[in-house]
Amino acid sequence: MLNIYCPICQRDCDETELSCGGQAHLIRRDHASSDKDFYEYLYERKNGKGIIFERWRHVYGCGKWFHTARCTLTNQVFGSYSAKEVQPPKSILATIRRSRVDFKGWVK
C-alpha cells in the first residue's frame, strides 16, 4: 500500500485516501493550439518504467491537488511538493539522486 505525504495536510496518507491524476507538469493546451499539441496534451503520456512525476489528490482529506515523485517499478515514493511548481523542486531531485545514481533528471 502506498504511503504518500500530503504537503497541504502535512501528514502521511494511505493510498486509499488519495486519487491519482496522472502525469504532472503537462502543458495545458487550448482551442488555439495545433492538432498535434492538443493530441499530446490529451493522450500522449510518458508512462516510463522508473521515476515519474505525477499528480495526486487528497480526495478523502483536504481535497487538494499536489505532486509526487515515484518509481513505477518499485513504487518507492521520493516526496511530495506543491502543485503550483512548474517543475520538480531541487530538493526532490536530490532525494531521487541519492538512491538512484543513474537518474538523469527531469525531462519535459
Binding site: L2, C20, N75
Partner: peptide, 13 residues
C-alpha cells in the same frame, strides 16, 4: 490499480 506502475503485484486494498 489507480496509478501507473510496473510492479506486477497490485494494491492490497
Amino acid at each position: 490499480d489507480g496509478y501507473n506502475n510496473y510492479s506486477q503485484r497490485g494494491s492490497f486494498h
